[in-house]
Write a protein that binds this DNA or RNA. Structure first.
Length: 114
DNA sequence: AACATGACGTATT
DNA sequence: TAATACGCCATGT
């Protein structure tokens, strides 16, 4: 483990842990919220190292599909966990649902304007 | 140093 | 809408 990974993972996990139940974030969104824009691929690495207690299943692709191979064991587990908290699917894609204000804050931070 | 890899994202066809 | 091409960037070899 490099020092970079340790600090990066820490920030990323912190963001993921704050995603409200029933809501999802994209890898790129998590990266940006953690202060590392363009690090979507690094987020996936951090997820593979994430502690099981983390709601890792709330992180999905930007196109609202799951990142695992369709039909794989991991895919089914993630889909089940999400459905379990009310996330709806249609043809392998998560049905768009309104983002909570809470999630918006995670993404953009407290409103700096106005 | 060079190349492959990955739970990705965006632009272009 | 779907498939491809590129861009991205730390890591492992």
């Amino acid at each position: 483990m490099t020092e970079f990974q340790k600090s990066f993972d820490r920030k990323v996990w912190q963001v993921v842990a704050s995603i409200p139940s029933g809501q999802v974030m994209g890898y790129g969104e998590v990266a940006r919220a953690a202060g590392f824009p363009r690090y979507s691929r690094m987020v996936s690495s951090a997820m593979s190292r994430s502690p099981t207690a983390l709601p890792w299943f709330r992180v999905v692709r930007s196109n609202r599909t799951l990142a695992f191979e369709a039909g794989s064991e991991n895919y089914r587990e993630q889909a089940q966990l999400l459905k379990q908290e009310g996330v709806r699917f249609e043809g392998g894609k998560i049905i768009e649902q309104p983002r909570s204000d809470e999630l918006d804050k995670i993404l953009w931070g407290p409103p700096a304007d106005k």
